[in-house]
């Protein structure tokens, strides 16, 4: 599903000394089945932005259209929005509350009014996706799991709602490198099944590797927008937004400084590898 944001502005606690404008006239469009990364320094308004798109913050200026529909409009059914947009918050493991993993994952779909048999199928499918064995884990308490496993349960709880848009706010923060990699692969496969993905992250490497579109936020404004190649090769502009290049791009930059001719758009590991192979006259392994 597509997302369209028009002239979005939002101020926290207006009319008090704590007044803070978190978003300033932000506009962009996301196509159906796109994989979009959002980066920006802490406090740049990323969480506010994704929460407004998810319909969790009200009272903003501007418009948010999900597949052309404005859910701020009272005539629209908000349940429909819940069904279409899944949200994974930062540290989602803190939202677990049920006695068993199965019940916790079933909470969302049950709330949406899905039939019990269908709920069970979805719980199975969701646990399968996050690689938790259904028979082994269904009756365990979510609180008996490790941090990483808890997060899997929480994410399964959102996937079981079978959203068309998946919005994630720093979902890989605090995971180990393997966990991050696995999570990005899972997200990619969901995206390939047609889900529109919107992912806030500070991990430039993972975003460069997996996304197809990147938004850069800076002090509440949309600072840059484009393909990962465009964004992650513009060192000066990224620095201006207090961000840095992905490691591969940093490495390419160092090689360039040493006089090696490496194209600007090299930001991914396999791209760099291919270029270096060619330069060094080596054969493809």
């Amino acid at each position: 599903m597509s997302i369209k944001v028009e002239n979005l502005s939002y101020t926290y606690m207006p009319g008090t000394p704590f007044e803070h404008q978190a978003l300033k006239n932000v506009s962009f469009e996301i196509e159906d089945a796109d994989f979009v990364g959002i980066v920006g320094h802490t406090g740049s308004g990323k969480s506010t932005l994704v929460q407004i798109i998810s319909g969790l913050i009200k009272g903003y200026d501007g418009k948010v259209l999900i597949n052309g529909i404005d859910y701020a409009d009272k005539k629209q059914d908000r349940k429909l929005l819940r069904r279409q947009v899944g949200v994974v918050f930062q540290y989602p493991e803190y939202q677990l509350f049920e006695e068993t993993i199965e019940k916790d994952i079933a909470y969302g779909p049950t709330k949406l009014g899905v039939e019990p048999e269908e709920v069970e199928r979805r719980v199975r499918a969701a646990m399968d996706l996050v690689e938790l064995d259904y028979d082994l884990y269904r009756n365990k308490s979510p609180f008996s799991l490790s941090g990483g496993q808890k997060r899997k349960v929480a994410i399964a709880g959102v996937l079981a709602m079978e959203p068309s848009i998946l919005i994630m706010d720093e979902p890989i923060a605090g995971l180990d490198p393997m966990g991050r990699e696995n999570f990005m692969r899972l997200t990619k496969s969901l995206n390939e099944c047609g889900l529109t993905i919107l992912m806030v992250s500070h991990n430039m490497d993972n975003l460069a590797e997996y996304t197809r579109h990147v938004l850069v936020m800076n002090d509440g404004e949309l600072f840059m927008e484009g393909t990962p190649e465009e964004i992650f090769s513009d060192y000066d502009k990224l620095r201006a937004a207090s961000l840095n290049l992905p490691e591969v791009a940093q490495f390419a930059k160092l090689l360039r400084a040493k006089g090696m001719d490496i194209p600007q758009n090299v930001i991914r590991y396999d791209q760099l590898k291919a270029v270096l192979m060619e330069k060094l006259g080596g054969k493809q392994l």
């Binding site: 929460q51 998810s54 969790l56 349940k79 819940r82 947009v85 899944g86 949200v87 918050f89 989602p92 803190y94 939202q95 909470y107 969302g108 709330k111 949406l112 709880g157 959102v158 709602m161």
Partner: peptide, 12 residues
């Protein structure tokens, strides 16, 4: 606030 938002997103 955070947990309420998260559960709202899950249909609560």
């Amino acid at each position: 606030d955070r947990i309420m938002k998260a559960q709202t997103a899950r249909g609560a």
